[in-house]
Amino acid sequence: MTEFQLISLPVELRSLRRWAAARGFSADEGRGLHHLLSETFGKGALQPFRLMALPGAASGVIYAYAQSDVTALKQVAQECALPDALAVCNLQELAGKTMPNAWREGRRLAFDLRTRPVKRLLKPAGVFPKGAEVDAFLVEALREPPEGNPEIDAVDRETVYRRWLVERLSDAARLELARMVSFERRAVLRGGQSREGPDVTWHGELTILDGGAFAERLAKGVGRHAAYGYGMLLLRPAR
């Protein structure tokens, strides 16, 4: 695949909340950020992305993968972005670096990853119609229990979500370890409807199996909702 960039963009959080509230996005931070980045840099230009901020902080940083470099992104923002959007983003501090487009097979890396572990149903299940987006843990619970074992809660939530993560990395990397460091139920707005689902952050380590596929997974994100703040693999050296 072609080269892509890792971008960092400082944002002023109070201004961000005001901007989102004025547009009706205050109930869904990810949707607000999606629109802010799309209107400022172009649809899908910074995707996947992740907002990192300490609790109670006045500012944070959006990290994202992009096909355009810093110069091109700044030019688009200066030509097209609205003034109130630029008041949220510190465009002068926009920074980036070129990411590898292939990685050495066997390389072990640590990662920080926020995910929304959901699945699309291939057939109706319980109250959910075919095609519904459902919590991966609930999908497991809706399955018929094995013969002679009526217990459906023998597997815990973290184990189910870890299996979901393994499936989504399998073409590119082998999951060596993964620890669920946060979990909450979060409602998001999609298609004019509010949908509640799991919001899970992982810390872990992986081994690259296919360098090209791994680069593609970085650029596209892990799982659904990569356009709304989920699925960005942030890397660091393994222990």
Rank of each mutant, 00 (worst) to 15 (best):
A87P: 01
L86P: 02
A20K: 04
Q193Y: 08
E151S: 11
R17P: 04
L138K: 09
G96S: 11
E105K: 10
E167Y: 04
K97E: 15
Q78S: 08
P145T: 09
A77Y: 03
L233Q: 05
E196I: 08
M1S: 12
L138H: 09
T71A: 13
S59Q: 15
A85R: 04
I7T: 02
E3D: 15
L9T: 06
R185H: 08
V160G: 00
P198L: 00
C89P: 07
A95G: 13
Q47M: 11
P129K: 05
G223I: 04
R143F: 07
E167N: 11
V166D: 07
A72M: 06
M232G: 05
A81V: 01
C80Q: 15
E79D: 13
G211N: 05
Y63E: 15
L218H: 01
L206P: 01
A187S: 15
A77L: 07
L122F: 13
V200T: 03
K74D: 05
F137C: 10
V181I: 14
E39C: 12
L189K: 12
V88L: 05
I62T: 08
L37H: 06
D210H: 10
L6H: 11
S170E: 14
M99I: 13
A77E: 05
V61A: 12
L165H: 01
A178C: 07
P83Q: 11
E158P: 02
N101L: 12
Q75W: 08
V188N: 01
L33R: 03
P145Y: 05
G96M: 06
I7E: 03
S194V: 11
L36P: 00
N101K: 12
V222L: 03
L218F: 02
W202K: 03
M1W: 05
R174V: 10
S194E: 14
G223N: 00
A58Y: 05
D153W: 12
Y230A: 00
K74L: 10
E184H: 10
L113F: 08
R120S: 10
C80M: 14
E12N: 14
L177W: 13
F183R: 04
R236L: 09
H35C: 09
R239N: 13
A72T: 13
W164R: 00
G212H: 09
R17D: 08
R190G: 02
A141K: 14
P83V: 10
W19T: 01
L234G: 00
L91K: 02
F49P: 01
F183K: 05
F25T: 03
E216C: 07
A85E: 07
E167D: 14
L233G: 06
A141E: 13
H203E: 11
L51H: 03
L109V: 12
F41K: 04
Q75E: 15
V139C: 08
